[in-house]
């Protein structure tokens, strides 16, 4: 299964393998042998903070610690959390169209959206900005946006809504920046009325059951690509248990359901999106 990782300057091969196993166990991700160098680079800051010299010392501490908190930090450091505001902006436009259609078909209830693997919050906050600008967030029936990630550190940052100059420049048009953010001490902080639109929660896609209630639309972009095919299948099962009949799934560019699940098929109505397969009563056309 997993390739044995070769030793490096700061870690024996058994230390590297233990760390890789931890990542796989906790987050469902495998580190390819040719990317083992990432372990070292990614964990360097943590080693420094803890005053440790080698990965072997880190592994020793991991084995000795009881709380699992250090394990969280190790996993956190190894996850790729790259994201940006309005990533694949056209996809988000289609999301807003889809939400409008679902709202129109279900005027009596709130539409529910799940951003799974939301990282530091740019994806759900972009969506909240977009839907507000389009006048779709006004009343008591405003869509509910639930955003989850495995990483407590990423979620803390998302809840604070605080971004560096570098992060804010990625993808966020300047007019939106001045509308929705405040400049504080060199950073940009999202206004409370924006952050309030999103409920951030910790959730592990590979071990937790889906958040309560069904969702009309799930965004799970640039998350699956880090999982093995077996893990992807399991995650699609979780997602299908969380989607309403006829609801939609949006993956990242280059990610697909093909050969991995029978629960989702390409949507006919929204290009590039997937529709839940078992929808005898499609949400989009039948008010339920």
């Amino acid at each position: 299964m997993r390739a044995t990782l070769t030793p490096s300057a700061s870690g024996s091969s058994s230390a590297m393998n233990m760390i890789a196993a931890l990542l796989e166990q906790r987050a469902g991700q495998q580190i390819a042998a040719n990317r083992a160098w990432r372990i070292e680079t990614a964990l360097k800051p943590l080693l420094r903070v803890r005053g440790l010299k080698t990965l072997d010392e880190l592994v020793a501490q991991l084995s000795a610690s009881r709380t699992g908190e250090l394990g969280d930090q190790v996993v956190d450091a190894l996850l790729n959390q790259e994201t940006s505001f309005f990533r694949d902006a056209m996809v988000l436009d289609t999301v807003s169209e889809a939400i409008r259609a679902i709202q129109a078909a279900n005027p009596e209830r709130r539409v529910r959206i799940w951003s799974a693997g939301c990282s530091t919050g740019q994806e759900p906050l972009s969506l909240a900005m977009l839907l507000t600008e389009k006048g779709m967030m006004q009343d008591a029936l405003a869509p509910e946006i639930v955003a989850t990630d495995i990483s407590p550190a990423a979620l803390n940052r998302a809840r604070a809504g605080r971004y560096s100059q570098f992060e804010i420049q990625r993808g966020l048009p300047v007019r939106r920046m001045v509308t929705w953010f405040e400049s504080i001490g060199g950073d940009w902080v999202a206004k409370p009325e924006l952050v309030r639109r999103v409920q951030f929660r910790q959730h592990n896609l590979t071990s937790d059951c889906a958040p309560a209630g069904r969702f009309d639309l799930i965004l799970c972009r640039n998350v699956m690509l880090y999982f093995s095919p077996t893990v992807r299948r399991q995650v699609f099962d979780i997602l299908s248990s969380a989607v309403r009949p006829g609801g939609l799934l949006v993956l990242g560019a280059g990610e697909t359901v093909i050969d991995l699940t029978e629960h989702f098929n390409p949507s006919e109505q929204f290009r590039g999106f997937y529709a839940a397969a078992d929808g005898a009563t499609p949400t989009l056309t039948t008010a339920r």
């Binding site: 100059q165 420049q169 048009p173 300047v174 007019r175 920046m177 001045v178 405040e182 400049s183 060199g186």
Partner: peptide, 22 residues
């Protein structure tokens, strides 16, 4: 990256802004 500064530029007709170094 002051807000007042950026707003002034937008009002004067700039479409976007980018911080140096980029």
């Amino acid at each position: 990256n002051g807000m007042a500064y950026i707003r002034a530029a937008i009002e004067a007709g700039a479409d976007e802004y980018v911080m140096k170094p980029f």
